[in-house]
Design a protein around this nucleic acid. Structure first.
Length: 369
DNA sequence: GCCACCGGTGGC
DNA sequence: GCCACCGGTGGC
């Protein structure tokens, strides 16, 4: 139990693996995402009117979310006392309750080898990556999780949550009668992958989209954030954003600046979702002699060791205990197979100047947050 | 040819 | 350990 929660304020997101093979991308849906390209202005979402209508596409049925799982319990999940107010959770919308779990299970079934990526040659199964389907925020008062109807609303809440804690009543904007007396919309059980999101991330500028793409388990990183400019250009770092803005002064004129971008990614609640990095090789020389117990000759032994994959533990966990409270990972979380793609080692350029090589992109992928 | 995805280093 | 960044490649 460890809770990462202790560490700092965080928002939580839960991600669920999208099911079945295939396609990951298509499924998601929000059309707002799809529109990105064309959409000129409006990021309307930023100012939400008083109530959000749920897109038909958003599958989340917020209004009836009465209880995906009813126990209530989230409470102690991570020390509530302080952090809970700004925790956000995501879960897969496609699941409104019913059978989703199965889907997940399937996915889990093929778990990838812990650490090695699948052999290229066997390019079999299409990779399934976790994706976000919906958003949830924990009430600062009762600690129950409430579904947030849209990505935009979620981004708004996340941006301001430190100053404006979320309460069940806040949800009346889209669920007129919601209150702390209602059962939680979702609980942390082992059926979903949960992640800790960060508070205070600025909403993307109007016309821009902030995309979150999750990586498969066992990889070197949990997720990537991309910004998609109104033109469709995908940018993956502050350096690229800056360069893009420099090349398109019109955005600067609109008032867009770097403070409106953040590449911070959420963290997986499940430990070991991300592979740990082996020790860095000591720089030439024997640094190694820092004394390993034993006796070996420093010069010859290479201290590199892989961390053992604790993998299985999690995978096997039993079932869905459905109970709630766990802060950490419950049992099954999603597994994705990371896979295919072999790659030769490469060395990073020592510094990097930016590259921005990419061209426009059509982003239609939607499952990002 | 393009792009999504992933690895992995440098820096803290 | 985490974060930022970006090269590289498989797959389309």
């Amino acid at each position: 139990m460890t809770e990462r929660a202790m560490q700092r304020p965080a928002l939580k997101l839960t991600i669920k693996l999208k099911g079945e093979n295939t396609v990951d991308n298509s499924l998601t849906t929000d059309d707002h995402l799809n529109k990105v390209e064309g959409e000129p202005s409006a990021s309307d979402s930023s100012n939400l009117p008083g109530s959000l209508a749920i897109n038909s596409q958003d599958k989340v049925d917020v209004s009836s979310a009465g209880g995906l799982e009813n126990n209530h319990s989230v409470e102690d999940d991570e020390n509530p006392s302080e952090n809970s107010q700004y925790q956000l959770v995501l879960y897969d919308p496609t699941s409104n309750g019913a059978g989703e779990t199965e889907t997940i299970v399937d996915a889990v079934a093929h778990q990838p080898p812990p650490f090695s990526r699948r052999h290229p040659s066997s390019n079999q199964t299409p990779r399934v990556l976790p994706s976000v389907g919906a958003f949830t925020v924990q009430c600062a008062n009762c600690f129950k999780w409430r579904l947030i109807p849209t990505k935009e609303k979620y981004e708004e809440i996340r941006e301001l949550i430190m100053e404006q804690p979320f309460f069940c009543e806040t949800g009346r904007e889209w669920r007129p009668d919601i209150s702390c007396h209602d059962p939680p919309d979702i609980v942390q059980d082992g059926s979903r992958l949960w992640a800790i999101d960060k508070p205070s991330i600025a909403r993307p500028p109007p016309g821009w989209q902030r995309l979150l793409r999750f990586r498969g388990e066992g990889g070197t990183k949990f997720a990537d954030v991309y910004y998609v400019a109104p033109s469709g250009k995908r940018l993956r770092s502050m350096v690229e954003i800056q360069k893009y803005l420099d090349e398109h002064p019109e955005y600067i004129e609109e008032g867009i600046n770097l403070s409106q971008f953040s590449f911070q990614i959420p963290r997986p609640l499940k430990e070991n979702y991300v592979r740990k990095r082996p020790h860095r090789v000591a720089p030439a020389n024997d640094a190694g002699d820092h004394g390993t117990p034993g006796s070996f000759d420093p010069s010859e032994v290479r201290p590199i060791t892989w961390v053992s994959p604790d993998v299985d533990t999690d995978l096997q966990l039993s079932g869905p205990g459905l109970s709630m409270n766990h802060s950490e990972d419950p049992g099954l979380k999603l597994e994705t197979q990371s896979t295919k793609r072999k790659r030769t080692p490469s060395k990073r350029k020592s510094n990097g100047d930016l590259v921005n090589s990419q061209n426009e992109v059509n982003l239609e992928e939607s499952h990002e947050l």
